[in-house]
Computed example of a mutant assay.
Amino acid sequence: MKPPEPYLARRIAPIDTWREAGHAIKVYGIHRDPDLAGPMLSDAITASARAAARAVLEGEAANDRCHGLGFCIVHVGDEAIWLLVDWWITGGIVCQRMLSAPLAQPDTFTPVTQPALACVWELVVTAHERDAWVRHMLTAKPEPAAWLHDVLPAGRY
């Protein structure tokens, strides 16, 4: 069994809020290079990820249980570009579809079929989003606008 590599922080930042398929989606970028001076995501990766997220939301998140709110993570990793599309439904449940694209073909996102949830860096975002959902939405007076503005600060995590 190959031992895990030592943990190295990665750059994580909120990128945008996309309004797609009746959903407001907070978008985060993660990059394997923590010292990257340029943009977190290229225009090609951003456009492809947005189109893939839209397709997921149109196909999977169009039902009465959806709140119309979610988040996605676009992660330029060591093995691939990962796209996690998450949306909230009633009962405090977050649903997810994971896709990936080869590093050399960032416009080719396909569904991940093997069992997977997220990597340690993506879980930083997921943990923040869980806590923000509890703070702003699982209350007597839910505040979607406050939830949308509550983003994980950019940094190395």
Rank of each mutant, 00 (worst) to 15 (best):
M1Q: 07
M1G: 13
P3C: 09
P4T: 08
P4A: 11
E5A: 15
E5S: 12
P6E: 10
Y7A: 13
L8Y: 08
R11M: 05
A13W: 05
P14K: 15
P14G: 08
I15D: 08
I15N: 06
W18Q: 06
R19C: 12
E20S: 06
E20N: 09
A21V: 10
G22H: 07
G22K: 04
H23D: 04
I25N: 03
I25C: 02
I25W: 04
V27P: 01
G29C: 05
G29P: 01
I30L: 13
R32V: 12
A37Y: 00
A37D: 03
G38P: 07
P39T: 09
P39I: 01
L41M: 01
D43F: 03
D43I: 05
A44T: 14
I45P: 08
T46Q: 14
S48V: 01
R50F: 00
R50P: 01
A52D: 07
A53F: 05
R54I: 06
A55Y: 00
V56T: 13
V56H: 10
E58G: 11
E58L: 13
E58V: 13
E60D: 08
N63H: 15
D64K: 15
R65Y: 11
G68R: 07
G68I: 07
G68D: 07
G68E: 09
L69P: 03
L69Q: 10
G70F: 00
F71V: 05
C72A: 03
I73N: 09
I73Y: 02
V74H: 11
G77Q: 03
E79K: 15
A80R: 11
A80Y: 07
A80F: 06
I81V: 13
I81S: 04
W82D: 05
L83T: 01
W87M: 06
W87Y: 09
W88K: 11
W88P: 01
I89S: 08
G92K: 05
I93N: 14
V94P: 06
Q96R: 15
M98P: 00
M98E: 10
M98F: 06
L99I: 08
S100F: 10
S100Y: 12
A101V: 02
A101H: 03
P102Q: 04
L103C: 00
A104K: 13
Q105I: 00
P106K: 03
D107I: 05
T108N: 15
F109K: 08
F109N: 01
F109Y: 09
P111L: 08
P115A: 15
A116M: 12
A116C: 02
V120C: 03
V125C: 00
A127V: 14
H128R: 12
D131Q: 12
W133D: 04
V134P: 02
V134M: 13
H136G: 04
M137V: 09
P142H: 07
A145M: 12
A145C: 02
A146T: 06
W147G: 00
L148D: 06
D150A: 04
V151D: 08
P153Q: 11
A154C: 00
R156M: 03
Y157T: 02
Y157F: 14
Y157H: 12
